[in-house]
Amino acid sequence: MRPRKWCGLAMAVALTATACSGGGGERGTAADGGPPGRDGFPVKVADCKGVETTFAAPPHKIVTSNAAALEMLLRLGVGDRVIGTGFPPGKGTLPGDLGARAAKVPVLGTAVIPKEKLLGSGADLYIDTFASMGGMGGMGDAPTEEEFAAAGIRHIYLASTACASMAKGPQRDLSGVEGDLTRLGAVTGTAQRARELVAGMRAKVAAVRTALADVPEGKRPGYFFFDFDAGTKQPMALCGKQVANAVLTQAGARNVFADCDGDFKPVSWEDVVAKNPDWIQLGIRDRGDAAANAQAYDRAAQFLRTFPATKGLAAVRDGRFLRIGSERTTLPGTRTADTVEEIAHTLYPARFKAAR
């Protein structure tokens, strides 16, 4: 999958000189600009503004800002190096052994990790999913780069979310998520495993793309991501620069707010009604309990069915709702490809009947 407009941003956050090459980027580059040494080190990674961090060897004490970064490291096979996380995954969020391993990671903050705890954690690397994400809110008093340096902590980002608002255009494919996995693989010395994960994602998305190849853009159903937990007084639109826009696009949906600038933006219910979406995703945040999640989905659906502005929408009357969690859609990870599959199979059941 070739990067599109995302590539302009990826140049600022990927492994130096390889982000948009279409191949080999996961190996990194030598710190002096020459070919990489044994195991791909040294590796250079640039932040959202192009400031580079050099890794001469893999880090051994990693703190993650949230469950998305933690899950990536677990899937790369380096979960034993993670000494703490913020926004931990709820019970049952991650499947099987992955969830058991995640449960062993110390929780430094149930939400944002307090600044003092992060700086005193003893970490040699902090992986930041959020940075300036406008839609997350409440990011607290984050350490400065000078404070990170004084504590001996290198600071890198998941670019598909943390740097998304700085992109020149919308995210329309999963190249940003693939780039995050590739960079983490290079930094942690697990480049081969990263390649395998990216290949698995590409295979799933390619199958969807093939099945929907003859569906013209104008015939794709309108889709509204309803962020129920962001509040119901004023809905939060999911804009084109958010990674979820790539998920929806690859799934054959048409994000009705793809043209708003940034990653998230407050809109009005009148705006939602004017868009008249064909499908609505009930995007609730994981409660860590299946029954609690089901109740939250029910409340979100009930709100739309009874709220004067939305109860007349055809999608609401006909119950065209998707119950897919916010994290799986708006945060990066290998399961973004699974979400592409789930949305596509729901919107186009006849095209995937044989696959089921």
Rank of each mutant, 00 (worst) to 15 (best):
K61L: 01
Y348I: 11
L70K: 06
Q192V: 15
E270H: 01
S165M: 08
D173H: 01
G92I: 11
D298I: 00
M11I: 11
S268L: 05
K265W: 02
G134A: 10
G79H: 00
T329P: 01
A17R: 13
D97I: 01
K233G: 14
G109M: 10
R4H: 13
G240I: 02
P308L: 10
A14S: 14
T249S: 12
R287C: 02
N245Q: 03
A57Q: 13
V208A: 06
V208K: 02
S326M: 08
L304R: 02
Y126C: 07
L181D: 03
F55W: 05
A258Q: 08
G176N: 07
M72E: 14
A355M: 12
N245L: 02
G24A: 11
L70P: 06
L347Q: 02
S65V: 01
V247I: 13
A354G: 08
P88I: 11
A67D: 11
Y348H: 07
L9E: 06
W269R: 02
R154T: 08
D180N: 12
G40R: 09
I324R: 12
G283A: 15
N293F: 12
E341L: 13
A296H: 09
L304C: 10
V267K: 07
A100W: 04
A191S: 15
M72H: 11
M11Q: 14
S160V: 04
A337Y: 05
G92H: 12
R195Y: 05
F87R: 05
R328E: 14
A296S: 13
G325V: 03
F321H: 08
R154K: 15
L119S: 09
C48A: 15
A100Q: 15
D259V: 03
R287M: 13
A142P: 00
M166A: 14
G176A: 15
G231E: 05
G312T: 12
P114S: 07
A68I: 04
T16A: 11
A102M: 09
E26P: 01
M166V: 00
R193F: 04
T161Y: 03
V107A: 06
G86M: 10
G96K: 07
D261W: 00
H60R: 14
T54F: 03
A244K: 00
T64D: 12
W279E: 01
R81E: 11
D318Y: 06
F87C: 08
R101G: 02
G25N: 13
L174R: 04
S121D: 12
P95I: 05
A290R: 14
K168H: 09
M133Q: 13
E196N: 08
A56P: 04
A251D: 02
K275G: 00
L9D: 04
T210K: 15
Y126T: 11
G222D: 04
G92P: 05
L125P: 05
G140D: 09
A191I: 10
K61V: 00
M11L: 14
G90N: 12
A244S: 14
I127V: 15
G24K: 06
C7S: 03
D289I: 07
A56E: 13
A191G: 12
T188P: 02
S121H: 02
T18Y: 05
N66H: 13
I284P: 01
F352S: 08
P59L: 03
